[in-house]
């Protein structure tokens, strides 16, 4: 009985799913096509892009840190992969995805060095790393949209269908599954949350806390890079500042999913729910053809309401 209870997701993690169902039901009242399979499958495909980013962000936030370098790790990975494909050399083209992922991992390690060794607050350090990446990108592309194109594999990953479901969604589920296993079953997962709770105590228990921080930031960089590769496949190109609109929704998705921004407490299941909720909310607001202004206002209000519900529930219990 106890193990059953432990394996059930917490109520915080269920909130965004309830919200998602309410959104679908409420939206379908005005737009019946929302209940259609095509629309929902398309939403799952779009959700996957945000999903990769939020997956990495969850690990970093569980540590009690934050990664603001997401936009240009995403943009950089997209530029690396599309320019390798665009070089016309088939050998380089096959390296496109691995090279982009290595790029993401390396930036993640740079983030980790600043946070774990130099002890710079992650919020400032990753911001500085982000602006350096922006600088490198501008220097390389001359401020124009980078030349290059996506490879067939990238396009298939981003837009393909397998057994009726979008490939992007399935890759996202697969990646989430692997990292969920890592969190549940490995020592790394336990250290991650315990650093989020109390880094000093974790260090005193003999855990090499810097290595855990390195690993978490490197995985986060990998996830952001994967998101960049997918997005480049979706748009069949890389473009300047393609990552900027993703930064805040990523954090919002993680937090709505019940992960504490202070670290230590949270779950990947919740993050997945948060991603679905935010994607659907954005999509329904644009289906309703609202002006940018109202979209922003409603987006902000709904996130505030979700957060207030979380704290109200915690106060009540």
């Amino acid at each position: 009985m106890n193990t059953l209870k432990q394996n059930l997701p917490s109520i915080d993690a269920i909130f965004p799913y309830i919200g998602t169902v309410l959104l679908i039901l409420g939206g379908s009242y005005f737009f019946p096509q929302i209940l259609g399979f095509d629309y929902l499958a398309q939403q799952l495909q779009i959700a996957a892009f945000l999903g990769f980013l939020a997956l990495g962000a969850t690990l970093v936030i569980l540590l009690g840190h934050i990664d603001l370098s997401v936009p240009w790790v995403l943009g950089g990975a997209a530029i690396v992969s599309t320019s390798l494909v665009g070089s016309g050399n088939p050998a380089l083209a096959t390296l496109a995805i691995p090279a982009a992922l290595i790029f993401g991992g390396l930036v993640g390690i740079i983030n980790g060095v600043g946070v774990a060794i130099l002890r710079i607050p992650s919020m400032v350090w990753t911001l500085a790393v982000n602006s350096m990446l922006l600088g490198v990108a501008v220097l390389n592309t001359g401020g124009f949209n980078p030349k290059g194109e996506a490879s067939g594999t990238m396009i298939w990953l981003a837009t393909g269908n397998l057994a009726g479901l979008p490939v992007a969604f399935m890759v996202w589920v697969g990646a989430t599954g692997i990292i969920a296993l890592l969190l549940k079953k490995s020592a790394f997962g336990r250290y991650l949350s315990s650093i989020g709770y109390n880094e000093k105590a974790t260090f005193l228990s003999g855990v090499s806390t810097p290595s855990v921080i390195f690993a978490a930031f490197a995985i986060a960089g990998l996830c952001s890079a994967l998101g960049g590769v997918m997005l480049a496949g979706y748009a069949n190109q890389a473009y300047q500042s393609m990552g900027d609109p993703f930064l805040l929704p990523t954090i919002a998705a993680v937090v709505i999913g019940g992960t504490s921004i202070l670290g230590g407490r949270g779950s990947l299941i919740g993050t997945v729910g948060g991603v679905l909720f935010i994607t659907l909310l954005t999509s329904i607001l644009s289906v309703m053809q609202m002006s940018d202004a109202w979209r922003n206002i409603i987006f902000g209000l709904i996130i505030i309401i979700m957060l207030l519900l979380q704290t109200l529930r915690r106060k009540g219990s």
């Binding site: 805040l248 202004a293 109202w294 922003n296 206002i297 902000g300 996130i303 505030i304 957060l307 704290t311």
Partner: peptide, 23 residues
């Protein structure tokens, strides 16, 4: 009163304020 962490609360209100500005 809402006991929301400042970073998250202001993330949400930023969207709200920009929306009002756009109005």
């Amino acid at each position: 009163f809402g006991r929301i962490q400042p970073i998250v609360a202001t993330l949400a209100t930023a969207s709200l304020f920009v929306g009002l500005a756009l109005l």
